Simulated scan of single mutants.
Amino acid sequence: MSINRVNISGNLTRDPELRVTGGGTQILSFGVAVNDRRRNQQTGEWEDYPNFVDCVVFGARAEPLSRFLSKGSKVAVEGKLRYSSWETKDGQRRSKLEVVVDEVEFLSSRNQQAAGGQGYQQYGQAQQPQAAAPAYGGPVAAAPQPQAQPAYGAVQTPPSADVYDEDIPF
C-alpha cells in the first residue's frame, strides 16, 4: 500500500494562470513558496531556505479560485503529488513534480494581503462595508455601523447540555 498526500502552507509566488483545454476543462496553475529551516554550518544560525512548489487545480473549481488568489496570498493546500516528464523540441528530457490540489484554505484575506498583514480568514466571511461613492457620482453615503463580533481566537464557553452516553442512539 502507498499513500500520496501532501499538505503545504505558504505564499503564492505569482498570480494564478487560468487556461482552458480544447475539451473545455479549466486548469488553474500557481506556485507556492514554502520555507525550510536549516542551520548554517559557518555561522551556526538558523536560516530559511525557500522551496517553490507548483500547484494545479482542474475542473469547475479553477475559475472561482482564480478570482480569490493572487501573488502573495497565504494559503494552505492539500492534494497529491503528480510526476510529469516530456521531451522538448530540441530533444532534452524535462520533468517536474507538482501538487494536484484537492483543497485550498485561505490564510489571509484580500484586505490583509493588501496591507501586508497575516491572518486567518474563512472563505465566505462577510466583510464590513466601506463608504463608497455611487457609480453615477452622487454624494457619499455613510457606512452602516458594524456590530460587535467576537475576535478570532476568542474562547467561547459552549452551552451546557445534559447529554449522557445512554442518550446517544448508536
Rank of each mutant, 00 (worst) to 15 (best):
Q92R: 14
S9C: 15
G59F: 09
L69E: 12
Q42M: 05
V34Y: 00
T21Q: 10
I8N: 04
P64H: 09
G72A: 13
G10S: 01
G23T: 11
I8C: 03
S85D: 11
W86P: 05
L81E: 06
T43Y: 08
N11E: 08
D36N: 11
N40H: 07
E45C: 01
D90P: 09
K96I: 02
W46V: 03
L65V: 09
S85R: 13
S95W: 07
V53H: 02
D54Q: 05
K89L: 09
I27R: 06
V6W: 03
G23L: 06
S66L: 14
T88N: 11
D102Y: 04
G22E: 14
Y49L: 12
S84F: 00
L69Q: 04
Q92M: 14
E17G: 03
R82N: 07
R14G: 13
A62E: 12
L81M: 10
D102W: 08
W86L: 04
P64W: 10
N7F: 14
R38S: 05
Q26P: 11
S73R: 08
E87D: 12
I27T: 04
S66R: 15
T21M: 05
G44A: 00
V100T: 10
P64D: 02
Q26E: 15
R61E: 15
L69V: 06
V34T: 05
G72Y: 13
E47L: 09
R19M: 08
S66G: 08
V104H: 02
L12D: 02
T21N: 11
R94E: 06
T25N: 13
F68A: 06
S70Y: 10
R93Q: 13
V6Y: 09
N11A: 04
F52P: 02
R19G: 04
S9W: 06
G59I: 13
R39F: 10
R39M: 14
I8L: 12
E78M: 15
A33V: 03
S9F: 09
D102P: 04
K80H: 10
E87N: 11
G22Q: 10
E63I: 08
G10P: 01
V77P: 00
S29Y: 00
K80S: 15
D15W: 06
E45P: 05
N7K: 15
W46C: 05
V56W: 00
I27K: 02
C55F: 07
L65A: 03
A60E: 14
E78A: 14
D102C: 06
L65D: 05
K80I: 04
K74N: 15
P16Y: 06
L81V: 00
S95Y: 07
R39D: 14
L28W: 03
A60T: 12
V100H: 02
A33Y: 00
R93I: 12
S95L: 08
